[in-house]
Amino acid sequence: MAVYDTFISKDFKDLAEDEEIIGVIRDLTPGKSKYRGKYAKFVVSKDENKYPERLWIRLGRGQLIEKPCSMKILEEINIFPEGL
């Protein structure tokens, strides 16, 4: 199971579950590439066992929510113009 985190700009209670979210997630796999960002479409559940990946939630100024969520990545999205 891969472990990621993401930042949300709203209160944790308002986090949309089981709905497609587009945003940046960070890969927390230990090693040189830890904290690598991915722009992705994903779904989240506050049930940590519902989806295959673990997702930690941080609020807008970095506050960590103590209990992890689960997540499924639906698609990675490239936002960079071709050739750049």
Partner: peptide, 18 residues
């Protein structure tokens, strides 16, 4: 792309992820 938060020169993490 989303950037921050970051511990800033004011001594606070003020700018939100944005």
């Amino acid at each position: 792309l989303e950037e921050a938060p970051f511990g800033e020169y004011t001594g606070y993490r003020t700018s939100p992820r944005d």
